[in-house]
Design a protein around this nucleic acid. Structure first.
Lengths: 264, 264
DNA sequence: CTAATAGTGTCTATTAGACAGTATGTT
DNA sequence: AACATACTGTCTAATAGACACTATTAG
């Protein structure tokens, strides 16, 4: 069989997205949800001291999916997590050291499940995206450091209403990871609109208000209360339990309705 | 830099989908649209004489996209075609000769644009899918040979309403290509519902009746005439030209409205 | 009492489905 | 005339948005 004719490294890059809640200064109001991504600070060249996506080399007996699960468990201690393949990134010069073919995956986790301490050099960055005309401004912050960059939304040049996202400014991110992150966020938004993957970002039990917070955070827009309750009604099961989330009326806890998909 | 520690081949597999029209026995009625995929008969081991997707090795200076464009042009003579990355397939034993990592792409073409003769061993297969409960039966036929296999629709095991498609019977297709084809078709259906990519399967000018035929063919269901015209009204521009498509009232020709996406 | 969220109900606007009815060509 | 599709219009059903109103708690 024809063997490979060039030296190549086969790697995986993980977009680990998480949601957590933080108490508000106002004791009456709900804790605020934050949407974040796990990044790792590089400790060697190239791009030393820049931030990058967790990832690593894929071993000879592994698929990219298995390697990604391994990396995810190493970074978070979690198993059985929602993970989806995003894309192959194989631009010839994406790594100055040589040809590197990378498969990116997106994992979704509820950060309240995290019990172990993060790996050294690993850190959660809150994600904030603002949109103006056809430009996006992405700000990632971990409380001490801020990474930010701009992205232009460009219609693909063939008959379709799809878009490419082109990074138009420098950032503190290694390799092509700024591009991988925006592509991943856009794919996540798309899936939030068309699937039930959001529930992978929620605890086992949650209130409808919390669920709405997460939808609003990911889609970057306010939703109408009554319409929201209508549309998610079939996706959740109400439990008998109530919770007190602040200085206001208590809320019923609900769970994802696994039966939902059987009716489609 | 850490080099790859195992021999690996990096390849591309192409799902080239096409639409063409064929005259009906009834001279009054519209020509019938057919949805098809280009397959190649293998002339060596493994899987000699089985059908497979066009594809090939990715060279050291190439990305998978560039290699796919090269293969597409070799097979069809066309350039500037809609092409989208689908997935990486890297199961350890997917090729009996050794580790092969393959990136699959989906290309959409209007078969009436084809002027050159196909490569030897290449052939278009009409695609017909029937659905019952959670099973699909796929039949590919080129007029002489028939390839068919069954697929089971399985909910993914994490919180979501997404599905995996598992091939449950043997077919005359090489490697894991039966799986790649059903995955590609499902992605195409999904995109037909959410984007304007169908227009890449249409000629420059077409009638609304023809467009409806293609939508119905790809989605495998009848659409309501008036509702269809309403929903695609903004996506097309009516021209001054008329065509006679059979023994009935002539139809206006229309074109894809490229301005459509600027209003979103 | 007030602030803040939980939860319901209702009116309206938009969109999708059903289907009748008219138009216009070929055979 | 019969057939087949092109195209329009209209009624109804389903869905989404706006928003008011009631409930319930902490402070």
């Amino acid at each position: 069989m024809k063997k490979i004719k060039f030296n190549v490294a086969y790697t995986t890059d993980l977009l680990i997205f998480g949601i957590d809640s933080r108490k508000n200064a106002n004791t009456r109001s709900l804790p605020v949800k934050h949407f974040s991504i796990l990044l790792v600070k590089r400790d060697k060249e190239p791009f030393v001291d820049k931030w990058c996506l967790p990832g690593g080399f894929i071993e000879s007996g592994e698929t990219s999916k298995i390697a990604s699960d391994r990396v995810l468990t190493k970074e978070t201690g979690l198993t059985n997590v929602y993970m989806q393949q995003l894309s192959v990134n194989d631009a010839v010069n994406r790594d100055p050291r040589g040809r590197v073919i990378s498969v990116s995956y997106m994992a979704l986790i509820d950060r309240t499940l995290l019990v172990e301490k993060l790996q050294e050099n690993a850190c959660w960055f809150d994600i904030c995206i603002t949109e103006e005309n056809n430009f996006y401004h992405i700000v990632l912050t971990n409380g001490e450091e801020t990474i930010n960059y701009d992205v232009k939304k460009i219609p693909i040049d063939i008959k379709s209403d799809e878009y490419n996202y082109e990074v138009t400014s420098q950032s503190n991110l290694a390799f092509d990871h700024a591009k991988l992150i925006i592509d991943g966020i856009m794919e996540l938004r798309n899936k939030v609109n068309n699937t039930d993957i959001v529930f992978n970002l929620m605890p086992e039990k949650f209130t409808i208000g919390e669920l709405k917070q997460v939808y609003e955070l990911l889609l970057n827009k306010k939703l109408v209360n009554s319409a929201f309750r209508r549309t998610i009604a079939d996706k959740v099961i109400l439990t008998e339990e109530m919770v007190q989330t602040g200085g206001h009326r208590p809320s019923v806890l609900c769970q994802y309705n696994e039966e939902n998909l059987k009716n489609k």
